[in-house]
Nucleic acid binder design. Sequence first.
DNA 1: GAGTGGTCTAGACCACTTT
DNA 2: AAGTGGTCTAGACCACTCC
Lengths: 233, 233
Amino acid sequence: MPKKLYQSVFDGIVQRIVGGGYAPGMMLPSEFEIAGEFGVSQGTARKALIELEKKGIVERRQGKGTFVTLRTPENSLFHFFRLRDENGNQVVPDLLDEKIRKREATTREHERLFGQPEEVFEISRVRSFEQKPLCHELSVVSVSLFPGLIERAPLPNTLYVLFQQAYGCAIISARDKLTAKPAGAVIGAALGVDPEVSVIAGSRESLDLLERVIELRDSVYLTDNVHYSVVMD
Amino acid sequence: MPKKLYQSVFDGIVQRIVGGGYAPGMMLPSEFEIAGEFGVSQGTARKALIELEKKGIVERRQGKGTFVTLRTPENSLFHFFRLRDENGNQVVPDLLDEKIRKREATTREHERLFGQPEEVFEISRVRSFEQKPLCHELSVVSVSLFPGLIERAPLPNTLYVLFQQAYGCAIISARDKLTAKPAGAVIGAALGVDPEVSVIAGSRESLDLLERVIELRDSVYLTDNVHYSVVMD
DNA sequence: GAGTGGTCTAGACCACTTT
DNA sequence: AAGTGGTCTAGACCACTCC
């Protein structure tokens, strides 16, 4: 039995979103309509919608309505690309190079990725900012979750937009583990810097709205002109 | 024009906290009592309390009451010390060395710190984890906000606990800017590592519950056995 | 059992956006 | 003017904590 009413309304709406009933960017029914459909009061429907908004699953705007969050290049960068310039402004990088291939999953990838895939796509990218190399990213996703991904190359600048719009998979949270290390020969060559240069290495797990691990991403950032921004509250 | 009612209740409670009417750790009146004092309904008082909880200013526990957030070494580390070990567990460091001195504020410190101080305390610390040097921290705070701080040496492991309990100044949020660089001669010597070793350098601004910049802190982390953890959602 | 916060209801009115 | 989310009220009952 569903314990809290607003929780079952929350779950019901999530189900409709993952099932495609509510498409990305689509307007949801009003609070009163949702309340009617689930047989609860408007205040309870409201609480479910507020929880959905807190999780980033929907967006609400007074006078307009409630909408399924649409991943755009802008909000994808803002939420998940944490590099900022000296003044704290968002860094919007360019894509310099991209390689994508299919390969067997490593043990760690098999264990961590949702669906325990045997095969994965590996997407290697080099990004630049103001004509200078900025970072190297190595993304790994399950082949079975993203069939035909390799035929879509070149991929758009922001992967999460593609994941949502082409595969209905919405990334809503991510966890980075950051360390400092020398760039090394391979990454150094890819970024055009000395192998001894210090870089931030970020190891990420990206989760969808059912909190499944969809992507593993290893990033390397040059921080000469930018920094990785963290807000704690 | 009249503000939002729950906002004025929120502000009223914040005032009582900064003014000392509600001390750290103290239990607040119940929702109904607060509603009565401010002349609003219980639901409106409730909304104000929920907002206070979201900001980390109070903590609510069903069946017990609402309490002014008490900064403890545990929650201070958990919220503001982002280093985790390989398994994602909180790193609890030891204090190896501490130096504190009074000096003139730099231009940047004068501009950024609340109160535009001419004089500051500079607290330099070296921390270790599992018998190995872990990080170097350089904290700077206004002399006028923390009179007599230098006489309190040696300071407790977690500064924010002292700030709240001895000076009534509650740090509730912080922003870190992270870069990678070589340790350098001075920090390398302090940490007992080669000057060429890559480290994460973190530049922090710490804010109190009125969003005033209370502390500037430059940290240097060795990330051989730990990482800096970031959660995005 | 008394007191607390947590959930839920039913209704009113306000503020904003669009037609 | 119509429709949306945002605020506010007044009351009921539930779940948890402590005596």
